[in-house]
Amino acid sequence: MAKMTVATLNEHRATMKKTYPTTLQPSPLTRIVVGMGTCGIAAGAQEAWDEMKKSIAEFGIEASVQMKKTGCMGLCQVEPTVEIAVPGMPTVIYGKVTAEVAKRLVRKHIVEKTLIDGHIQDRPAIDIVAYVKASEGEGGTR
């Protein structure tokens, strides 16, 4: 990437907004986001990641599933945490995702489209970046 000017940065941002919708924004793809801060990794997030990757390959659904890592979701008590957005289903955060649970997530949630019992966590906060957008008319920006 060449050095940007403010104009090319803004153009780039417009493109990236389309490339990277958040899990609460619609996408034709299934998205899996794994909390991989120090806390998540220590609790076994890497094992969960590997297991899901393997399962996805076994089901042959690699093309429709995107996996990415993120930082800490803040739910230390229930690490490792995994957020899943499947088109047509509520986007949910699962906690205590061991390798065994990870495997089940792929089969039950992604392939069979049912939620898994006992692991869903409450979303801690609204998305402030999206909220800020809505208030733009209120004189937030100058």
């Binding site: 907004k17 389309k18 919708p21 958040t22 899990t23 609460l24 924004q25 619609p26 957005a85 088109p87 047509g88 289903m89 509520p90 986007t91 949910v92 979303r123 609204i126 998305d127 970046v129 999206a130 909220y131 957008k133 809505a134």
Partner: peptide, 21 residues
Amino acid sequence: VAESRPIGAAPVGAAASGGMV
């Protein structure tokens, strides 16, 4: 982003579709 949303596929979960809350 907001306009490209397919009809009937409004975001599930919490608030954040493009530009709306």
